[in-house]
Design a protein around this nucleic acid. Structure first.
Lengths: 209, 209
DNA sequence: TTGCCTAACTAACGTTCGTTCGGTTAGCTT
DNA sequence: AAGCTAACCGAACGAACGTTAGTTAGGCAA
């Protein structure tokens, strides 16, 4: 094991309620290997071995290697989007509460499903326009939601930033990176990290109470 | 050309004063391909073709494919570290000035050399401990410098954060992502982005004047 | 002219890649 | 007992992989 790891996490976690069938085992194995070595760095044979299956069996569950990645990217982005969306809907109408809800959910997703986040974000470029389409929509939707909150806050005067887009990029970017360094053994808990980042986001927007 | 690109930038830029020899052309070609497709996704033959050379010629300049990546990672991290270090040294003793200097230089590097930043950060995990050693030192040094500034600011009372490490991770992370979306055609200039992020960092630390 | 050095070349090596095909199970339904 | 389905496997395909060995062409010093 080298010192140099792509992400700190070691536990593989797919979204709940997906590990049933044989294709679930393949997905989980691919998740781990794509996260640790990258899509091009993990072969179908590697994935098969990790899933306890022969290479040919992979093709009984997925039409191609790229389809496996597409599925993982979709699952990842869908999980992230559902998380932030329901969090925001469950908060009040104050843009500050919405930002806190969004960032806590966003960071929470990256601490809970670091491998899914890493694959969905840093292997997405491999996908063809066609296979990535579902994921692009979700990604866009997620980003739009955050931007909407920021813009509403700017209009109502609780946020003061020069560019809403730039603030969205900064908040999104800092949350994204969490997936790479967070591990359950880290000195701060996932909740503390999420709370810390939520406060960072509020401050960044000039909206601290 | 797919819609889905790993990074927005298209111009290849190695650090100034490196494009002379034949090995410089190889480095530049590898930089472009590793940035766009990832290390494992770009073959030696691809790199050779992009450099206008036959595959075997690559091995007259580098002992292996991994050595090319190691060199790019080292160059990238060295450029980043030199940039932030000299910027901080050139600013006053006020931690707030130092943060502004650091973040402007950090973001500036990611807008000026996006491909170098992408390769150095997201392909580093491929390197063996041995080949990555020089890079790990630089990365650590860069991070320590930022942490030092934050801690000094906390001691002197101009910054108020619960965890210096978390703030460093957030500031570093948001800057890192700039390399992926920034392009000279973006509506904000590189200077505007750098200035915006510097202000974000100050606010995040509770150190806005 | 001769000899050497550098930098590029051609050709191929053994391996691994994604994928396919034809066939074999095990468990369920009828 | 017969048939269906889902899951899996062994063996192999052509292509691409990183890398190596040996060769050739041009410039320079003797």
């Amino acid at each position: 094991m080298t010192i140099n790891r792509r992400l700190a996490a070691t536990t593989v976690r797919l979204l709940p309620g997906l590990k049933q069938s044989g294709s679930g085992r393949v997905l989980e194995a691919a998740l781990k290997l794509f996260a640790e070595r990258g899509y091009a760095g993990a072969s179908v044979r590697d994935v098969a071995a990790a899933a306890g299956v022969k290479p040919a069996t992979i093709y009984a569950h997925f039409p191609s290697k790229e389809h496996i990645l597409a599925e993982l990217c979709r699952i990842g982005h869908e999980g992230q989007y559902r998380g932030v969306r329901s969090a925001v809907l469950g908060s009040g109408g104050d843009p500050r509460d919405q930002i806190v809800a969004y960032v806590r959910a966003h960071v929470g997703f990256h601490t809970s499903y670091p491998m899914l986040a890493v694959v969905a974000n840093s292997e997405l470029h491999v996908l063809s326009d066609e296979l990535g389409a579902a994921t692009f929509v979700l990604r866009r939707e997620s980003e739009d939601l955050l931007q909407e909150i920021v813009k509403r806050g700017m209009r109502s005067g609780v946020f003061k930033v020069k560019s809403a887009w730039l603030a969205v990029a900064a908040i999104g970017g800092m949350g994204l990176r969490v997936a790479y360094w967070f591990a359950p053994t880290y000195e701060l808990s996932a909740e503390q990290v999420a709370a810390g980042y939520a406060e960072f986001a509020l401050r960044l927007l000039g909206g601290e109470r």
